[in-house]
Design a protein around this nucleic acid. Structure first.
Length: 514
RNA sequence: GGCCCCAUCGUCUAUCGGUUAGGACAUCAGGUUUUCAUCCUGAAAAGAGGGGUCCGACUCCCCUUGGGGCUACCA
C-alpha cells in the first residue's frame, strides 16, 4: 500500500436503535486517527439487515454523534446540518431526513444493492462463489447434526457439488429463493498484520462458506463491507475485535476482486463488570442513556478514550480534551485486552468536568434536569427563577457527579413548608430553653444583615464571629432549621441561597416548633 | 465442541531486560473553622502457574490454566 495515500477511515453503524457506547469508542478512535493523520472521517450506514432496522435510528444516531462532537466530512448528514456550499449533495431516498455528501456514495448500503449484485456475479463467474438453494430448515438440521457429532457447524457444500448449471438456471428462472456463498479455498493459511494485534493467521479449512448475498437480495456485512471500503477508498479499517474471526474472509474477498487490502485495526472489546462483552442486560450501553443521565460529552469522550488506550510514557494526566486526544493518539498504543466499563470512574470524570463549568453554563445544562424533578415542579415561582437556581448550582457545583443529580440531595431549597422532626434541631444534649435561645440568636443576627450584605462571605464571617468557640451550638440548630435535613451544605450557603426573607421564615418556624 | 484473541492492584493503566513495579478511580484511616459533599494527607492493594533464553525477566519464547470473542440468509 502506498503509505503516502491520504488516510480515509469510516464509522459504519447499523440503524438498529441506538449508538452503543462501544461503537462510540470505535468512532472516537476513527476520528482521532483521521484528525491526527490529516485524513478524512466518513460516516456510512450499514442497513443490510431489514429485520433489525429501527425507525428513526439513522437520524438519532447522527444526532448522538453530533452531540459528542465527532465531526465527519463525508458521508451521511442530517439535512438541517448541511451547508449549501458542499458539492455533490444527494438526498437520501431511503431516509428522508438525511442527505449524502461526497464523491464515493451511496453511503447507505441499502441504496446500492445493484452494485453488490454486480460484484457478486463477478465472483460467481470466477468460481469464487456459488448459488445455494438450501432451505433454512435443511441448514438448521445439518448444523444440529454436526453439533451433535461435536463437529464445527459448517455448510456441507451440497449446492456446490450437487446442483448443475442447468438446475441453477432452471431454479433462477422459476425464481427459487437463493443465496450466494463464498467458496473458501482449501488448505490455505491466510496471514496478515493487524495494527493492534500484530501477526494473525487463519486456516481456510476451518472457515465456513459464508453467505455473501442473502435471499432478499441484500448483501451480508462481509460482502458489503469489502465492496464499500474499496469503493470509498478506505485506507484503515478500525473496528471491534468481534470482527477478527471473519477477517480472513474479507482478505480473501479483496484478493478475489484483485483489490488492495486496507490496513486493519481490531479494537479490544468493552466489557461488563463480569468481563463479558458490554451488554444491555448489565446496564446502560446507549450513548443516549448517558446523555439522559447528565454526563457531559467531555467526560464521556475522555472516559471512553482511556478504555483501551493511553498516551503512555509515564504520563499521569487523566483529563484530556478532544484536541489533546487528537494530538496524542496513536493506534500503536491501543491495547489488546478488553476493558471493563467502570461507571465509578466515569462519575468522577464527569464531576471534574462539571466543576470546570461556569455557573451560567451549568445553569443552561442543568435546567432541563431540574424540570424533570417533582420537587422542582411543585416549587414556588421564585424558586424557579434563574437567579435562585444559579445560587443553588453555585452551592452544588463541587458536589455533582452528574447533571441528573441536580437538587436531589438539597430538596429543602425548593420546599414551601419544611417538614421535619423537632429533635433534629437539637445540638447534642442542649435543653429546649437553650435551643430556643440559640435559634433566636441566629434570627437576631440574620435580621441585622441587610439585603445588600446578604452574601455567602458575609454570612459566614458574621455567623462564625458570633458562634465563637462552641460553633455547633449556634450553627447546627440554624442549619437544621434552614434545611430540615440531617445532611446539607453549610448554613451560610443555605441562607445565602434561600435569601433573607425565606431564611428568617424558616427560623421563626423552628422557634415555634420548640 | 472447533477456531481466534487476550492475561500488571477490585477497575482503567505506566513499565518497551536491570524500578522500593508508578499514577488514577474505588476502598479504608486521618485532617480540612457544625453535618454532608468537595478538598488535602496517608494506608492497603498487582505481574495466573510452570518451564526455558539471558549475568539478569512483569517485560522475549513455549506449555498449562483462566477469561473473552466468533462459530446466522445479524452486524
Amino acid at each position: 500500500m502506498d503509505d503516502n495515500k491520504k488516510v480515509r477511515v469510516r464509522f459504519a453503524p447499523s440503524p438498529t436503535g441506538f449508538v452503543h457506547i462501544g461503537s462510540l469508542r470505535t468512532a472516537l478512535y476513527d476520528y482521532l486517527f483521521a484528525k491526527k493523520t490529516g485524513g478524512e472521517f466518513i460516516l456510512k450506514i450499514e442497513d443490510t439487515d431489514q429485520k433489525r432496522y429501527v425507525e428513526g435510528s439513522v437520524e438519532s444516531l447522527i444526532k448522538s454523534l453530533d452531540w459528542v462532537g465527532l465531526n465527519w466530512s463525508e458521508g451521511v448528514f442530517l439535512n438541517e446540518n448541511i451547508n449549501s456550499d458542499k458539492s455533490s449533495i444527494v438526498k437520501s431516498k431511503t431516509y428522508p431526513t438525511v442527505s449524502e455528501v461526497g464523491e464515493f456514495g451511496p453511503y447507505i448500503q441499502s441504496e446500492k444493492l445493484e452494485v453488490y449484485k454486480k460484484y457478486v456475479d463477478q465472483l460467481v463467474k470466477a468460481g469464487h462463489a456459488y448459488y445455494c438453494f438450501c432451505e433454512p430448515e435443511r441448514l438448521e438440521k445439518m448444523r444440529a447434526e454436526q453439533t451433535a457429532e461435536k463437529k464445527a457447524p459448517m455448510y456441507d457444500r451440497y449446492c456446490l457439488h450437487n446442483v448443475s448449471e442447468e438446475e441453477i438456471n432452471k431454479n433462477l428462472k422459476n425464481s427459487c429463493p437463493y443465496t450466494i456463498r463464498m467458496k473458501m479455498p482449501e488448505g490455505e493459511i491466510i496471514e496478515t498484520d493487524d495494527l493492534v494485534r500484530g501477526k494473525v493467521k487463519f486456516n481456510t479449512d476451518l472457515i465456513d462458506d459464508q453467505v455473501l448475498l442473502k435471499s432478499d437480495g441484500f448483501p451480508t456485512y462481509h460482502l458489503a463491507n469489502v465492496i464499500d471500503d474499496h469503493e470509498m477508498e478506505i485506507t484503515h479499517v478500525i473496528r471491534g475485535e468481534e470482527w477478527l474471526p471473519s477477517l480472513p474472509k474479507h482478505i480473501l474477498l479483496y484478493r478475489y476482486f484483485g483489490w488492495e487490502v486496507p490496513k486493519f485495526a481490531h479494537l479490544p472489546l468493552l466489557l461488563n463488570p463480569d468481563k463479558t462483552k458490554l451488554s444491555k442486560r448489565q446496564g446502560d450501553v446507549a450513548v443516549e442513556d448517558y446523555i439522559k443521565k447528565g454526563y457531559l460529552k467531555e467526560a464521556i469522550i475522555n472516559f471512553v478514550a482511556l478504555l483501551g488506550w493511553n498516551p503512555g510514557a509515564g504520563e499521569t494526566q487523566e483529563l484530556f480534551s478532544l484536541d489533546e486526544l487528537v494530538e496524542k493518539f496513536e493506534l500503536e498504543k491501543v491495547h489488546k485486552a478488553g476493558a471493563v466499563f467502570d461507571l465509578k470512574k466515569l462519575d468522577w470524570l464527569n464531576g471534574q468536568y462539571i466543576k470546570k463549568l461556569s455557573i451560567d453554563e451549568l445553569y443552561e445544562k442543568a435546567l432541563p434536569f431540574f424540570e424533570q424533578k417533582d420537587f422542582f415542579r411543585q416549587a414556588g415561582a421564585e424558586k424557579k427563577s434563574p437567579e435562585f437556581l444559579k445560587r443553588v448550582l453555585t452551592v452544588e457545583l463541587d458536589r455533582l457527579p452528574k447533571l441528573s443529580d441536580v437538587g436531589e440531595n438539597n430538596q429543602f431549597f425548593f420546599a414551601t413548608d419544611l417538614q421535619y422532626d423537632k429533635a433534629l434541631l437539637r445540638w447534642k444534649e442542649m435543653s429546649d430553653d437553650d435551643l430556643k435561645k440559640t435559634l433566636e440568636k441566629s434570627k437576631d443576627i440574620l435580621e441585622n444583615i441587610s439585603q445588600d450584605n446578604w452574601s455567602k462571605e458575609n454570612l459566614e464571617k458574621i455567623l462564625m464571629d458570633e458562634a465563637g468557640e462552641k460553633r455547633g451550638e449556634l450553627l447546627w440548630p440554624l442549619r437544621a432549621a434552614l434545611t430540615g435535613a440531617q445532611k446539607s451544605p453549610s448554613p451560610f450557603e443555605v441562607a445565602w441561597v434561600l435569601g433573607k426573607t425565606e431564611s428568617l421564615k424558616r427560623i421563626t418556624k423552628a422557634i415555634s416548633l420548640v
